[in-house]
């Protein structure tokens, strides 16, 4: 391989910086909606960041980090946009809100567990986000539509990554199948919350993707994977939810404490 046989380029795409500079100030409602999607992605990125140097094989370290970086990119875009409404930056929102001000769905704050549980969460998250962004790219709000259009392609890959591992863990060995089923059992109670409409989403017709409208696509695409995995669609507990209202499971506080500790030791500092 000569030095010229591979090329490196930056690649043009819509980034958080573009949003912060170019987007119009969103309405309060739109900002609250963007905050939800941003928090989902941020919490997921934070969780996946933990896996760095802990994955089952080095190639998977690289793969999980790519997904984490994509999610972090989506989070930054949504938070930057939401922040315009309140004169806040992405970092103000990420580092200086308390637990009850976070409006991610509870799914995203569920712990990594073992690799199977992480894949179970990743499977649900990416199939949900795929349906969400697919609809949102047609939003009447141009900024949300642009963020969604970029995110959609990336989440499509995350979905494929999760599907591939679902197959291998479900059909690999007895041990991996046992762990995969347990991971799904832990994660599945948090699926229902993702598809609940509420006052905010009802008030943003044509702008937000109505959560309930995403369920059909989600069920169809996940059912196809479950069939290949020879797994029954999980049933059982349904968690109470409330993440969109700032009500969280006991895991989020710890996650935020770690994420925010340094920034909060130096309020007003830049990095």
């Amino acid at each position: 391989m000569s030095e010229t046989s591979f090329q490196v380029s930056v690649g043009e795409a819509f980034t958080a910086e573009d949003v912060a500079e170019a987007a119009e100030k969103p309405t309060e409602q739109v900002a609250r909606y963007a905050l939800r999607l941003g928090d989902d992605a941020l919490i997921l990125a934070q969780q996946l960041g933990w896996w760095v140097a802990r994955a089952p094989e080095l190639e998977e370290d690289v793969a999980l980090t790519n997904i984490a970086l994509d999610q972090l990119g989506h989070a930054r875009a949504f938070l930057s946009y939401a922040g315009l409404a309140w004169g806040k930056t992405e970092d103000d929102l990420a580092y200086f809100r308390g637990e009850s001000e976070f409006v991610n769905a509870q799914l995203f704050e569920q712990p990594n567990g073992d690799f199977a549980q992480t894949i179970a969460r990743q499977f649900v998250a990416s199939h949900f986000q795929f349906e969400l962004y697919r609809q949102l790219q047609g939003s009447a709000n141009a900024t949300l539509a642009a963020i969604a259009a970029k995110a959609l392609k990336e989440v499509d890959y995350h979905r494929d990554h999760a599907d591939q591992w679902m197959l291998r863990l479900s059909l690999g060995t007895d041990e991996s199948r046992r762990r995969m089923l347990r991971g799904l059992e832990v994660i599945w109670p948090f699926v229902e919350e993702l598809f609940r409409d509420d006052e905010l989403t009802d008030s943003l017709k044509g702008v937000a993707a109505a959560p309930s409208s995403l369920l059909e696509g989600f069920e169809k695409s996940t059912a196809a994977v479950f069939a290949r995995c020879e797994i029954e669609i999980p049933a059982g507990f349904v968690a109470r939810g409330g993440g969109r209202l700032g009500q969280h499971t006991e895991f989020l506080g710890h996650l935020l404490a770690e994420m925010q500790v340094l920034a909060r030791e130096h309020p007003g500092a830049t990095w």
Binding site: G49, D61, G73, L79, T270, W271
Partner: peptide, 29 residues
């Protein structure tokens, strides 16, 4: 990867978090 991975979850800004993750990922590569 470890000494830097130690700070990924605590990076003080989202931009720095992204940079650090990409860097530690390069080390795996």
């Amino acid at each position: 990867m470890q000494p830097e991975g130690n700070w990924i979850t605590r990076a003080p800004s989202l931009k720095r978090k992204a940079i650090l993750m990409a860097k530690v990922q390069d080390e795996a590569g």
